[in-house]
Amino acid sequence: MTEAPLLELDGVSKRFGSIVVADSLSLSLGRADAVGIVGPNGAGKTSLFSLISGDLRPNAGDVRLDGRSITRLDPASRCRLGIARTYQVPRSFEHMTVFENVLVAVHRGAGLRGREAFGLAAQVLDETGLADTANERAGRLGLQQRKRLELARALGARPRLVLLDEVAAGLTDPEVEGLVQIVAGVRARGVAVVWVEHVVRALFGVVERLICLAAGKMIGDGEPRAVLASDAVRDVFLGTDYGEVAPG
């Protein structure tokens, strides 16, 4: 008997009125996979994350983790099972310190207590380069640090699958480079990564599989360069600079 994949989506659909954000999506993700997701605005990338994390419930279809259906579980339960996400627009606990932001995730998501919890929180802040700001209020951080805190909070939950929603958007080139290093490190520890990003060259540093979404449908899935080179994907991105930023 083969082991069930880490995450499976089986015919997942979600619509808001006449707007379809997920049209019978099916995909399967193995342990320690690293997958990039691209697609034009409104393609349903963030909605896909919300369907996986539990922030949205699908109208139809099933979401499975380790072969077990999690479709009816709330986000908190899914987090404790190993799924953590970041938000595209950073949503930290503004009135709490950076350290506390991560500590909440460590206590609840990773289920650690006492010294162990403090240890993991400190380690995550080190890993994400936020150790210097540990005692600052999250509300005072700049954009780059907020993006990193999104990542740190997700890692604090000690996930097996982390969903990164445009964590590189709005950052300068050296900042993006630093972030890619961090994500590559996370991935190297055996954490599966699904990364939605407009900055495609950031993805190429980490992922070995690329999925392209358009209007809630999957129009490409496979080796990144092959996906970007396919006609269907080229059509969708006609007139944008996706093709050019992909390293040849």
């Binding site: 994390s53 922030d55 709330d74 986000p75 908190a76 987090c79 404790r80 953590a84 996400r85 938000y87 949503r91 930290s92 606990f93 503004e94 009135h95 709490m96 506390e100 932001n101 500590l103 909440v104 995730a105 206590h107 609840r108 998501g109 289920g111 207590r113 919890a117 909070r153 997700a154 604090g156 939950a157």
Partner: peptide, 22 residues
């Protein structure tokens, strides 16, 4: 820990939920 969860939920319910807070 519970006190921090309270403050976290007070700041942003959805984010708190996403890191495992009931």
């Amino acid at each position: 820990s519970l006190g921090r969860q309270l403050r976290a939920a007070s700041d942003d319910q959805e984010t708190a939920s996403s890191v495992g807070v009931n």
